[in-house]
Design a protein around this nucleic acid. Sequence first.
DNA 1: TGGGGTGATATTTTT
DNA 2: TATCACCCCA
Length: 668
Amino acid sequence: MSPVQPKHNLNPQQSAAVRLCQQPLLVLAGAGSGKTGVITRKIAHLINQQQMPPEQVVAVTFTNKAAREMQARVTQLVSTDTNGLTISTFHSLGLKLLRREREAAGLKRGFTIFDSDDSLKVIKELMKGGSKDEDVQQRRWQISAWKNDDISVTQAMQIAENGLESSAAELYAAYQRQLKAYNAVDFDDLICLPLRILREHADVRQQWQSRIGHLLIDEYQDTNNTQYEFIKLLLSGNSGLTAVGDDDQSIYAWRGARPENMERLKNDFADLQVIKLEQNYRSSGRILACANKLIANNPHAFEKNLWSELGPGDPIRVINCSDSESEAETTVSSIVTQRFKLKARLGEFAILYRGNHQSRPLEKALRLNNLSYNISGGQSFFDRAKVKDILAYLRLLTNPDDDTAFLRIINTPRRHIGASTLEKLGLYANERNTSLFNACHEMGLRSVLNNRAMQNIDRFTSLLDELEIQSRTEPPGVIVRELLKQVHYADWLRELSKDQAAADRRYENVEELASWIERMTEDDDLDLSEAVARIALLDMLDKNTEDGHADMINLMTLHAAKGLEFPHVYLVGFEEGLLPHQSSIDEENIEEERRLAYVGITRAQRHLTISHTSKRRRYGKDLSSEPSRFLEELPREHLMFNDEVPAEVKKETGQANLANLRAILNQG
DNA sequence: TGGGGTGATATTTTT
DNA sequence: TATCACCCCA
């Protein structure tokens, strides 16, 4: 990404990392050290120079975005055909294995991938309602944690030490049974189940191992236990391994990532080589000096010292503001100034914060100044209710056992199938040990339901049955369009809300989904169930955000900023209680908070501004706030303390932003 | 079915 | 304090 590093010249360490193929390799890639370049060059090297068949090269990332970026770069580098080369996320790779070894996992054709929403519904149901939402969330979290830690149902039962834990383990068991009944897997299963298959089926294991000539893993510090075991089982004695990661950028321990997997590699692979990438191509010297000094306060298994040739650059500005509103105004007016002074585009600016709620005052200030901005995160396209409705139809088409999908759409649009009908149907299905949709087809149901209800059900089933038959021959895009037509979806949306504009907007989402499915399946010739799976893995969501590559200020959490870089970065809310977060101040978590600050600082290429407030409203009360302890850990000689413009100046002129702007111009 | 009133709740999140 | 989910009523 960095334009500074010559595209075709690797430094000695990078080059060594690319060429070392015969031994397992751990690349310690500091922030901005060109790790993606190393991975992509290595893939090219394996194929071009080592003559490894592309189908034996497998590269794994955590996000679709990273995978796509890697794919694009590799395509540029490899001269020959890259057909068969695998560059995918952990989850997609897991899905690929699961599809091929479906029977070993006890799954039927067309199995559904449940998203976290679906899982939550299942767990809620199993907890017999009544439970508080918080508890349901908690249980889901526990189950997911077990799965990420490679702990099976049986093991969970064994390690349970009290009633509470064993009831959680019971729920885990029931949850897995339920998923099986629905012919569904959740996100975690996409790693868990393949791992189990590889473990238990020697023949499958050998087959997969023989396919893998070289395995490359990106963001290795983010792997959890299950992923680590999965990786190990994918490798045979003959497979090469390149793991690239940075323990200083491990910020996902709270959701199961095990940065100690980096050290484990040393034990599990006796001949492991370690190469450090310490030259930073991203940030100017003072920014880097700050980052280094800060992170030096964490213990390290691998020592690293980042350096840069980019020159010292400007000092880091530290601004103290009275409160969050003033912090937002100061930040925004600084952006206005800087943009003017540096002739910079809005897209070169990023405002980073610890928690999503911190974006509010910033948004307000940005809107006031008519600056366009982009907030990453928030509600994603696929979470929108109407899109999920359509997806549920498609899910049911490929998987008649998917009760969750069935329940979602049986009355969407209205089909006058009431609660009592559904209850009877549920009981009947339960007795017959079959799914709701299958039960709808059984003659026996006729004796349970009245005529009217049965007619409504019949209409629904025959609609889907016809679509299902069509889907065997027609491409998915056609099916979606046909579906929308058959259920009169547009009409239904329109009559649903009085607000025509809102209805149209909703339909646009649905329309967009349809055209995406069309495009996706045209390109790759996928069948319906593959298309649905891809959507479940959000395997195109970020394609959209990339298209919308307008020139906008970037607002995001520190977590979301990992892997990105910006010329001008504003790190707001650098305060005790926020960064380190209140609930992470204990000995155990403080290091990860420090890494989070480190990630924030190292996003900046040329300018970094850190701000904190004197008082901040928390839960309604104005509380005085202290600068973050991490501020003291930064080298003073590179900081420039720059107090905000006094509030009076703004009031007197009545032109807050103009006054701010002038004051800052004068100072800087 | 949708809107208004009420009460709980308040990190980080990809797939 | 602000938001959001949920419940009840029209």
